[in-house]
Amino acid sequence: MIIDGKKIAETLRQKLKKEIIEIKSSFKSVPGLTVILIGEDPASKIYVRNKEKFSKEIGINSEVIKYPENIEEKEVLSKIIELNKNRKVSGILVQLPLPKHINKQKVIETILPEKDVDGFHPINVGNLSSGYDSKIPCTPLGCLILLKEVEKNLSGKHAVVIGRSNLNGKPMAQLLLKENCTVTITHSKTKDLKSQCNKADIIIAAVGKPKFVKGDWVKKNAIVIDVGINKTSDGIVGDIDFNEVSKVARAITPVPGGVGPMTIACLLRNTVECFKRANS
């Protein structure tokens, strides 16, 4: 089975669109999302364009603030502080990666935790790992929704997460623990990664290596979620060797059209959640 991320994301967006219509009639205002984009990174520009397009489509007030690559850090931080105080802004997102002279940690920590739609603020990270209510990073949340489309009850399943980044690997492991999975986090220093993957009921790969996970790494009927996006001479491919793995897996996400659309849909969901919390 191929898990259709585009279709599932579209369903989520339609649900949010209806919710925003109700919000508008109750509160006479709508959720607002402000994205800060620094520099000219081509992938970031595409992401931001899609975020803006889908925000407007479902009725979120979307604003993109663009800065040149050489903007001073203090100017970015003072803009974030200004947005923190603006009641019309429900969510703030600073598009990563940032230029080298801007401290990512400082930027993330300046955003109010309650407006942190990316779920990267240490308070949100701490709440997630403590099992409390928190903002959940968009990509792992999208992966979890895709998993649940295939298997509603993940309790007792053995999940292997390949990659330990703050963006995906670590929060993904926390979400899977919350679902009562047994979780193994693997990374570049893991010995015999293949044998770890062979035991897994669920594999989530986010390593940034094209076609890294091969067919003989995956046990029959495993569910495989591919977070990777890699440009190659064959076009865009994931971290999973799709042709090989799709023959053995019970379900697999394609690249493109799998996790990517869900990440943006979950960002919109987080923005709506921020608005609801601020107005409850």
Rank of each mutant, 00 (worst) to 15 (best):
Q95P: 11
K74W: 06
V94Y: 01
R87G: 12
H101T: 11
I102E: 00
I92M: 01
N84W: 13
S78G: 07
K79M: 04
K74Q: 09
K104A: 14
P99M: 12
P97D: 15
K85Y: 09
S90H: 08
L83H: 04
E82A: 07
I81M: 10
I92H: 01
L83D: 07
P99S: 08
P97W: 15
E73F: 00
G91W: 02
K88R: 13
N86Q: 09
V94F: 04
K100W: 08
N103P: 01
E75T: 11
K88N: 14
L98N: 06
K104I: 05
E75S: 10
K104T: 12
K74L: 07
K88Y: 11
E82S: 10
S78F: 09
E72A: 07
L83S: 09
N103Y: 01
V94E: 01
L98Y: 06
E82N: 07
H101Y: 02
E72Q: 10
L83K: 05
V89W: 00
V89Q: 00
K79G: 06
L83C: 08
K85L: 12
L93C: 14
I92V: 15
V94Q: 02
E82T: 07
V76S: 01
E72G: 07
S90K: 14
I102Q: 02
Q95K: 15
S78Q: 11
